[in-house]
Design a protein around this nucleic acid. Sequence first.
DNA 1: TTTTAACAAGACATAAAAGTAAACATTCAA
DNA 2: TTGAATGTTTACTTTTATGTCTTGTTAAAA
Lengths: 151, 151
Amino acid sequence: MKISSQEEYGLRVLLRIASCKDAEGISIPQLSEAEGLSSHYVAKLTRSLRLADIIKSTPGSKGGYLLARSASDIIIRDVLAELGGVMFDKGFCGRHNGIANLCTNSVNCSVRSLWRVVQVTVDRLLSKITLEDLLSSEKDSLHVLNSLVEV
Amino acid sequence: MKISSQEEYGLRVLLRIASCKDAEGISIPQLSEAEGLSSHYVAKLTRSLRLADIIKSTPGSKGGYLLARSASDIIIRDVLAELGGVMFDKGFCGRHNGIANLCTNSVNCSVRSLWRVVQVTVDRLLSKITLEDLLSSEKDSLHVLNSLVEV
DNA sequence: TTTTAACAAGACATAAAAGTAAACATTCAA
DNA sequence: TTGAATGTTTACTTTTATGTCTTGTTAAAA
């Protein structure tokens, strides 16, 4: 249960795009420079975000990336699901059944219940957070985020 | 942010050990058979758990594994930290700074705040759950676990 | 004391994720 | 219409996580 590189870098790139004031958007070279990532890698990340309809691109000279919708409509849960997948997805038990053909815990699987609870908890948290919440300065966003934890 | 194989299999093996009634404990071959994992792989998982003082072993013939302490004293957060590491650990930013030497977000890093909130939330949940909570049948443990979510 | 069944440890092979590179397509402007 | 700057796509390399294999150690019982 670790945060993947794609989640980290993808989210950073998305924040750069979101905070871009230019109507033409921000280009791959600019994102690459700002985050210290190779331009090819930035392209790979933006591709995921674009296919998920989180950002939009204009190719050609003077091209770049812009948010596909307003920051307050972009839910962080959706962004992370795109970048890093779901923690406990439908195929999980099928992929983790050892040598046997069926999950040996299929009847009495308390582990599965645990994952479900963790998943629900994280999902519930991330659903409350929008891209807009992350756009303020660290202090402010810390404040907003902490208020979610302190409930 | 996915559940790793070690977390899944390690927890299953731990549950088998915990539910073993035999005073001599349960052996690697038995665990291997029960979970459909190779005995070598089981050995690797039990090694982590043993080094973390979660289980104890008796080598030699008639050997096997037993819990190192009572199930109600084994916190699931500690078990998962051993098996899968911490979600957002101290070295995370250092490892994810791109080409630049320093995290380019060091001053104004709302992403870091986000990870912290997620980490705290999951930690808080997993700290409330003990191995004992997972030992009951699926229905029962679901009930116990769900009560934690429904707060 | 020897055999046997178990655990222990680290090296090795394989699979998946991360990151790079190269060839291509699109748009704007001169 | 040409070229420069941009995004797009696919294939490749490297790294990390996963799982296997080999060799060694321990302790009970014959």
